[in-house]
Design a protein around this nucleic acid. Sequence first.
DNA 1: TCCTAGCGCTTTTTT
DNA 2: AGCGCTAGGA
Length: 801
Amino acid sequence: MPVARPDDSNDLTHEPAPGGLAARARAGVTPAASYLQGLNPEQREAVETTDGPVLVLAGAGTGKTRVLTTRIAHLIATGKAYPSQILSVTFTNKAAREMKERVTRLVGDVAEGMPWLGTFHSISAKILRRHAELVGLKSDFTILDMDDQIRLLKQVIQAADLDEKRWPARMLASFIDGWKNRGLTPDAIPAGEAGVFGNGQGGKLYLAYQQRLKTLNACDFGDLLVHCLTLWKGHPDILAQYQERFRYMLVDEYQDTNVAQYLWLRLLAQGRRNLACVGDDDQSIYGWRGAEVDNILRFEHDFPGAKVVRLERNYRSTGHILKAASHLIAKNEGRLGKTLRTDDEAGEKVIIAGAWDSQEEARAIGDDIELFQSRGAALAQMAVLVRTSAQMREIEERFIAMGLPYRVIGGPRFYERAEIRDAMAYLRCVHSQSDDLAFERILNVPKRGLGDATLQQLHLQARATGASLQQSAAILIETEEFKPKVRSTVRALVQAFGRWRLKLEHARPAEVAEIVLEESGYTDMWQTDRSADAAGRLENLKELVRSIDEFPDLPGFLEHVSLVMDTVSDDSVSRVSLMTLHAAKGLEFDMVFLPGWEEGLFPSQRSLDESGRAGLEEERRLAHVGITRARRHAKIMFASNRRIHGMWQSSMPSRFIDELPESAVEVAEAASNFAQGGYGASRFDRQPSFTSTYATPGWQRAQAAKAAGPQAGAQAGRWGGDSGGFGSRGSSGPRHASRLIEGELVAKSSGPASEFGVGARVFHIKFGPGDVFAVDGNKLTVDFDKAGRKMVLDAFVQRGA
DNA sequence: TCCTAGCGCTTTTTT
DNA sequence: AGCGCTAGGA
């Protein structure tokens, strides 16, 4: 394929690039191309195979981002493309930001001019603003967030005379999102699916929703992509422009693309065919929101002649951690197959530890962290990764009780907070008289006596005249429609918006925002609020006003907020990170705690129920992601009892624990009882003994410990010394039991039959007395007198009366 | 129009 | 268990 030169005169869409930048970039590059140095052969191949379709299969920790950024630098430095001719797509704003920074570091300011580096959604929005009228929008269309979307859908459902209780808007939203993820417009839904919701009206409601969006001059996130598809399919000339412009295309996290994104890419790539996708099928964890692992599995089929480069050399983790992760993920069937390897030392084994219940688990984590911290480890290098956010509470409580600094990553986002959304709604109303959803939101916030009745009148007027709510308000205050009191309130509001809009022409947006919040009584509302978080909310509002100053104008700010929902957090204090496994993708830590590896929780029962084998494989990938976040130390934990929705449930260790390779893991013994066995607070207990003093595998030791009684395993290497000690020291029952289990569960969780037979009378520490209903290895199904039928490990019950 | 009691739901989450 | 929503009453 001929190499496209940036100055090709047949490039009709060529934009005059900033003069001399490419030349400058090129000049800074020695023939040896310094940026290529330090790349391993595979990475280098991934960078230098510039033309034609390329799939880079980049396992965890193999330098994926480095390849992507170097590739961009390479394209620019060799003059193959101007920055403005490279399309680089990421999934998150964070990833986009990071990539921009790293490219800048490589090639200098040139990268700042990379206008087409961003998320699928931000790039789509940019394209749509230029051609909005071709898809039935105006160029200043608003982008609705989920909250707006739900409220709009509620209206649609109401209008269709459906019971909101029976047909929740959220459910419809997920159907519509599902369709949009597949690039389906209302007319394209498969016949069988159109009847999914609201007595067979799903398809109709989708259409009604799209029509409402059009009247509102708005679109939701999914539309950004779907409208682009519509645009390009309906206007080949415009598609051709973009195909011409994007000489090179790069996609990060390709395994996370959905069908719509795939179609989007394929349309563009039909031009130059220079599409490089980077991804890892083993890290595909977003199937539940429409990601198609198939996209990456079928890449070679979809883009014939594609070159596939595998990055398998891992620079992050030690040998045992990698081995554990690889062995686990090898159980998945649908994968392209990669084996991570490292030149690093074998390092510490992955530690597996059981706890009686989730509280003890949290306690053990806290104690481990404290111990390591006392030995000089930085809190910022430790992370606790959980399956569900509900698990976080107990851990947080423990950290708070201990005074351990921590940070939750991926919690409720700044722009999702109610006070921020209210403030944003005010600004949107100032910006646009036709933003009905925003107007509806603030009509009676703060309370000003304009309720449902008033809103109905406005809606009626709006529907009759085709005006927006704000315009309708302006009309109605000139009539006798409203009661006097309402009329004067509405008039005041309408006049206020007029005033604020006028201010916008002279004052800085941030100043206007401040005035708006002040004069509308919104700030007052929180000042008089006596609830605990009112002060924090006022703080957030100040922060919001401050951040407006970073943008040239109000529209710019509004666009930013609708597309970029995250804010940068402060990194000044070293803290332990607490997050879900999903949020952890792309991050790494020296030490990683993985609690809650229990059947039902992880793998999540719901995943299994809803998606069967595919669900299980996705959960397994999630486990793989979790383990591979660790550089040097990983500890997997499970609790035998956990409160779920307020009910205590006993649980079995996760099947994933059984799937770990024996040679790379080590089973920790329960600690507390040993302290009384003569070893006391020995130096063994004090050491965070990642370095086992024993060469024998964990199971053997655990087995031996079981056979020889409590003392035998007392000095075994494990995390945390006397961790988990207080609080459960007195209750030797569970402690004793859990020690036995830990030895057994990994080695033979489906092993020899229990000592209890069917019908035996047993006693369980938490559930009380019961009768054994069934026996499966060491797992008993017991009908408890009070707690009902539960599955428990035999070691947790004693022979009952 | 506002307040409150009761009901139901409960993964993961980005844009 | 806890939260958010809804409906119904004041």
